[in-house]
Amino acid sequence: MTSIAQERADRLNSLPFQKSAVSGGGLIGGFWGSIKEIAAHRELLDLLIRRELKARYKDSSLGFIWSLIRPLTMLLIYYVAIGQFLGAARGIPDFAIFVFTGLTIWGLYSEIVSTGTMSIIGNAGLIKKVYLPREIFPLAATGSAIFNFVIQMVVLVGATIVLGQFPLSRNLLYVPVAILIVLVWGVAFALLLSALNVYLRDVQYLVEVAMLILFWASPIVYSWSLVVGAITNSRAPWLLEVYLLNPVTVAVLAFQKGLWQAGSETRTMADITVGPQPWPPDLDVRLLVTAVVGCVFLIVCQRVFQKLQGNFAQEI
């Protein structure tokens, strides 16, 4: 009879050696290797997302309803201040739906990037003590952002149904495309910035400021037609192209085209008639290009992350 120890030794004898540091591999090969490693840890990823969601509102009595109160408050503020006081609602039919559509998709992006940026630092305790594929932490942040997004999405779609504005048309196809673009770019930035934040803590404050600017750089509380009006009358019409270079802007526009039905119709409000809203020319091509460039950027960011992560444990 062989002992437990001998059995273990015989089993180990038959195992191949594994290198503990797997930072090698080419651009695509290395990326693929990392994907496989993360896939092997998907159960843990799932638990980390739950942990993040559970822990966030653990001792509050309203719980995850808080994650809805924030966007709804923002909606109210923009509806009253920008829509009514500043008069943006006059040229934008169904202003409330328009703003909430923009806020929902923007909320997904900004939450992925800002919580993702903090994710490595926030899990310093684990990173210093256990080896895990470190991409898991930005991805867990992404997962909890997706959860909040889904809740808002339910509210948004519910509101369009209640108001009889559910956009049953081919435009709905823009919605998944917009979400995909936001996820790809959001995760790419989350990976890159979370890794840089380990070496340079200023990154997290920089992200905060950048998010503030970027919020106003996309047509979320004002409409695309206002941008077109302002820029084509100026002496620099090429600014419109610059405006559209922002991947999130393109995604926000596609998302609005998909879910904001009033934008594609002629509406009469009070005594003025508002025609269908303009959309950027070649929106489909732009979406395709943004998605493809985003995928390449994601791969590059993951490789940079992989290069930087070797020193995480000692730099944190």
Binding site: L15, P16, F17, Q18, K128, Y131
Partner: peptide, 14 residues
């Protein structure tokens, strides 16, 4: 344990 990667050389385990 693979928590820190060496600058030179490598570690193998099974």
């Amino acid at each position: 344990g693979g928590i820190i990667q060496p600058n030179e050389g490598f570690v193998e385990r099974r």
